Computed example of a mutant assay.
Amino acid sequence: MRKLQTQGVHHITLTGADRQTSIDFWEGVLGMPFVFDQPNLDDPDEGHLYFDPGDGRLITVFTNEARKPVHNRTPTDPGCVHHLAFNVSRATFSQVAERLTERGIGHSGPKDRGFMDSIYFKDPLGLLIELACYRFEPPRGCSHADVMIEAHRIRVERGDYNIQEVHLADAIERLVARTQQTLSSDQGS
Protein backbone atom coordinates (compact mmCIF):
# COMPACT_ATOMS: atom_id res chain seq x y z
CA MET A 1 0.00 0.00 0.00
CA ARG A 2 1.30 3.45 -0.87
CA LYS A 3 1.79 6.17 1.76
CA LEU A 4 0.33 9.65 1.79
CA GLN A 5 3.74 11.30 2.30
CA THR A 6 3.65 14.48 4.37
CA GLN A 7 6.17 17.26 3.84
CA GLY A 8 5.84 19.25 7.05
CA VAL A 9 3.10 20.94 9.02
CA HIS A 10 0.86 23.07 6.81
CA HIS A 11 -0.93 24.85 9.67
CA ILE A 12 -2.36 24.29 13.11
CA THR A 13 -5.76 25.77 14.01
CA LEU A 14 -6.73 26.48 17.60
CA THR A 15 -9.94 27.61 19.24
CA GLY A 16 -9.16 30.98 20.76
CA ALA A 17 -10.92 33.56 22.86
CA ASP A 18 -12.05 36.89 21.47
CA ARG A 19 -10.17 38.61 18.63
CA GLN A 20 -8.13 41.10 20.66
CA THR A 21 -7.10 38.60 23.35
CA SER A 22 -5.90 36.27 20.59
CA ILE A 23 -3.91 38.99 18.81
CA ASP A 24 -2.45 40.21 22.11
CA PHE A 25 -1.17 36.71 22.93
CA TRP A 26 -0.01 35.28 19.59
CA GLU A 27 1.52 38.50 18.25
CA GLY A 28 1.98 40.54 21.41
CA VAL A 29 3.50 37.85 23.64
CA LEU A 30 4.96 35.37 21.13
CA GLY A 31 5.91 37.85 18.41
CA MET A 32 4.12 35.98 15.61
CA PRO A 33 3.21 38.51 12.91
CA PHE A 34 -0.56 38.79 12.37
CA VAL A 35 -0.73 37.89 8.67
CA PHE A 36 -4.44 38.19 7.86
CA ASP A 37 -7.94 37.45 9.06
CA GLN A 38 -11.24 36.48 7.55
CA PRO A 39 -14.48 34.87 8.73
CA ASN A 40 -14.41 31.22 9.76
CA LEU A 41 -15.82 29.78 6.54
CA ASP A 42 -17.51 26.95 8.48
CA ASP A 43 -19.06 29.15 11.22
CA PRO A 44 -20.16 32.72 10.41
CA ASP A 45 -20.20 33.63 14.14
CA GLU A 46 -16.43 33.18 14.36
CA GLY A 47 -13.40 34.98 13.02
CA HIS A 48 -10.28 33.22 11.70
CA LEU A 49 -6.92 34.85 12.47
CA TYR A 50 -3.66 33.80 10.79
CA PHE A 51 -0.20 34.18 12.37
CA ASP A 52 3.31 33.31 11.13
CA PRO A 53 5.15 31.29 13.82
CA GLY A 54 8.52 32.17 12.29
CA ASP A 55 8.93 29.65 9.49
CA GLY A 56 6.42 31.05 7.00
CA ARG A 57 3.82 28.42 7.84
CA LEU A 58 0.67 29.26 9.79
CA ILE A 59 -0.88 29.09 13.22
CA THR A 60 -4.55 29.99 12.90
CA VAL A 61 -7.02 30.87 15.63
CA PHE A 62 -10.81 30.73 15.56
CA THR A 63 -12.18 33.65 17.58
CA ASN A 64 -15.57 34.50 18.99
CA GLU A 65 -16.35 37.72 20.83
CA ALA A 66 -18.45 35.76 23.35
CA ARG A 67 -15.44 33.60 24.40
CA LYS A 68 -13.40 35.22 27.13
CA PRO A 69 -10.02 34.10 28.45
CA VAL A 70 -10.03 31.42 31.14
CA HIS A 71 -6.95 30.07 32.78
CA ASN A 72 -7.99 26.46 33.28
CA ARG A 73 -5.80 23.78 31.76
CA THR A 74 -7.15 22.45 28.47
CA PRO A 75 -8.08 18.74 28.55
CA THR A 76 -5.23 16.25 28.39
CA ASP A 77 -7.39 13.17 27.88
CA PRO A 78 -6.19 10.65 25.27
CA GLY A 79 -6.64 12.19 21.84
CA CYS A 80 -6.37 15.78 23.11
CA VAL A 81 -3.49 18.13 22.36
CA HIS A 82 -1.10 18.19 25.31
CA HIS A 83 0.94 21.23 24.23
CA LEU A 84 2.37 23.14 21.27
CA ALA A 85 6.12 23.74 21.09
CA PHE A 86 7.77 26.59 19.21
CA ASN A 87 11.46 26.95 18.42
CA VAL A 88 13.33 29.99 19.73
CA SER A 89 16.97 31.03 19.46
CA ARG A 90 19.39 30.58 22.36
CA ALA A 91 19.49 34.39 22.76
CA THR A 92 15.70 34.56 23.04
CA PHE A 93 15.50 31.51 25.32
CA SER A 94 17.83 33.18 27.81
CA GLN A 95 15.26 35.99 28.13
CA VAL A 96 12.00 33.99 28.13
CA ALA A 97 11.49 33.56 31.90
CA GLU A 98 12.21 37.22 32.61
CA ARG A 99 9.96 38.48 29.82
CA LEU A 100 7.06 36.19 30.81
CA THR A 101 7.41 37.28 34.45
CA GLU A 102 7.38 40.96 33.36
CA ARG A 103 4.00 40.30 31.69
CA GLY A 104 2.63 38.49 34.73
CA ILE A 105 2.52 35.16 32.89
CA GLY A 106 3.23 32.18 35.12
CA HIS A 107 5.73 29.65 33.76
CA SER A 108 7.65 26.50 34.62
CA GLY A 109 11.11 28.05 34.56
CA PRO A 110 13.76 26.54 32.28
CA LYS A 111 13.73 22.73 31.94
CA ASP A 112 16.75 20.65 30.89
CA ARG A 113 15.65 18.16 28.23
CA GLY A 114 19.14 16.86 27.36
CA PHE A 115 19.11 17.82 23.68
CA MET A 116 17.13 21.03 24.21
CA ASP A 117 15.97 23.47 26.85
CA SER A 118 12.28 24.20 27.38
CA ILE A 119 9.96 26.50 29.28
CA TYR A 120 6.20 26.06 29.63
CA PHE A 121 3.26 28.45 30.14
CA LYS A 122 -0.40 28.70 29.14
CA ASP A 123 -2.20 30.66 26.45
CA PRO A 124 -5.28 32.71 27.44
CA LEU A 125 -7.55 29.63 27.23
CA GLY A 126 -5.24 27.28 29.14
CA LEU A 127 -3.43 25.53 26.26
CA LEU A 128 0.08 24.60 27.35
CA ILE A 129 2.73 26.34 25.23
CA GLU A 130 6.39 25.32 25.16
CA LEU A 131 9.24 27.47 23.91
CA ALA A 132 12.17 25.20 23.06
CA CYS A 133 15.77 25.81 22.08
CA TYR A 134 18.00 23.11 20.59
CA ARG A 135 21.44 22.76 22.16
CA PHE A 136 23.05 22.14 18.77
CA GLU A 137 23.14 23.24 15.17
CA PRO A 138 23.08 20.45 12.60
CA PRO A 139 26.05 20.20 10.26
CA ARG A 140 25.73 21.66 6.78
CA GLY A 141 23.34 19.60 4.67
CA CYS A 142 21.77 17.84 7.65
CA SER A 143 18.57 18.55 9.59
CA HIS A 144 17.84 18.56 13.31
CA ALA A 145 16.03 15.25 12.74
CA ASP A 146 19.19 13.75 11.17
CA VAL A 147 21.17 14.62 14.29
CA MET A 148 18.43 13.32 16.60
CA ILE A 149 18.23 9.96 14.79
CA GLU A 150 21.99 9.50 15.04
CA ALA A 151 22.08 10.67 18.68
CA HIS A 152 19.32 8.19 19.49
CA ARG A 153 21.32 5.35 17.91
CA ILE A 154 24.38 6.33 19.97
CA ARG A 155 22.32 6.57 23.17
CA VAL A 156 20.84 3.11 22.61
CA GLU A 157 24.27 1.62 21.74
CA ARG A 158 25.62 2.94 25.05
CA GLY A 159 22.57 1.98 27.10
CA ASP A 160 22.00 5.55 28.28
CA TYR A 161 18.63 6.69 29.62
CA ASN A 162 18.05 9.75 27.43
CA ILE A 163 19.84 11.83 24.82
CA GLN A 164 22.47 14.16 26.29
CA GLU A 165 24.91 16.66 24.79
CA VAL A 166 27.67 14.03 24.43
CA HIS A 167 25.35 11.99 22.18
CA LEU A 168 24.66 15.10 20.09
CA ALA A 169 28.35 15.93 19.72
CA ASP A 170 29.17 12.36 18.70
CA ALA A 171 26.22 12.27 16.30
CA ILE A 172 27.37 15.48 14.62
CA GLU A 173 30.88 14.05 14.29
CA ARG A 174 29.50 10.88 12.64
CA LEU A 175 27.31 12.86 10.26
CA VAL A 176 30.19 15.11 9.21
CA ALA A 177 32.44 12.08 8.65
CA ARG A 178 29.76 10.54 6.40
CA THR A 179 28.82 13.65 4.46
CA GLN A 180 31.95 15.84 4.26
CA GLN A 181 34.77 14.93 1.93
CA THR A 182 38.38 15.29 3.04
CA LEU A 183 41.81 14.90 1.48
CA SER A 184 43.18 13.49 4.71
CA SER A 185 43.66 9.74 4.88
CA ASP A 186 43.41 9.67 8.68
CA GLN A 187 40.47 11.43 10.30
CA GLY A 188 41.01 9.70 13.64
CA SER A 189 43.60 12.14 15.02
Rank of each mutant, 00 (worst) to 15 (best):
E27Q: 15
G28A: 08
V29I: 15
V29C: 14
M32K: 06
P33D: 03
P33T: 07
P33S: 07
F34C: 05
V35S: 10
F36A: 06
P39R: 12
L41C: 06
L41A: 11
D42E: 11
D43L: 08
D45N: 13
F51Y: 13
F51K: 10
D52W: 03
G54P: 02
D55K: 06
D55Q: 07
R57P: 04
T60V: 06
T60K: 05
T60E: 01
V61Y: 06
V61I: 15
F62Q: 08
T63D: 13
N64M: 08
E65P: 12
E65T: 14
E65H: 13
A66P: 07
A66T: 15
R67G: 09
K68C: 07
K68M: 13
V70I: 12
H71D: 15
H71E: 14
H71W: 15
N72W: 09
N72S: 15
N72K: 13
T74L: 09
T74Y: 04
T74M: 12
T76L: 10
T76A: 14
D77W: 08
P78K: 12
P78S: 04
P78E: 07
P78W: 09
G79R: 11
C80A: 15
C80V: 05
C80K: 12
C80I: 07
V81L: 05
H82C: 05
H83G: 05
H83F: 01
A85W: 10
A85I: 08
F86W: 05
F86N: 06
S89L: 04
R90D: 02
R90Y: 00
T92L: 02
F93W: 08
V96W: 01
V96C: 01
E98K: 10
E98W: 06
R99D: 01
R99M: 00
R99L: 02
L100M: 06
L100V: 06
E102F: 06
G104K: 03
G104N: 01
G106Q: 09
H107D: 01
S108L: 01
S108F: 03
S108C: 05
S108G: 01
G109T: 07
P110K: 03
P110G: 04
K111F: 14
D112Y: 00
G114R: 13
F115T: 09
F115S: 08
F115Y: 15
M116T: 10
D117G: 05
I119E: 04
K122H: 15
D123A: 12
D123F: 09
P124H: 12
L125A: 13
L127G: 12
L128G: 10
L128R: 13
L128W: 14
L128T: 15
E130K: 03
E130D: 12
L131W: 04
A132C: 05
A132P: 02
A132Q: 13
Y134S: 04
Y134M: 02
Y134C: 01
R135N: 09
F136K: 03
E137D: 04
P138L: 01
P139L: 01
G141C: 01
S143R: 10
S143E: 08
H144R: 04
H144L: 05
A145N: 11
V147K: 04
M148C: 00
I149V: 06
E150H: 02
E150C: 02
A151E: 00
A151L: 00
A151D: 02
H152C: 08
H152Q: 14
I154R: 10
R155W: 08
R155G: 02
R155H: 02
V156G: 05
V156F: 06
E157Q: 14
R158W: 13
R158F: 10
G159L: 11
D160I: 07
Y161W: 11
Y161V: 14
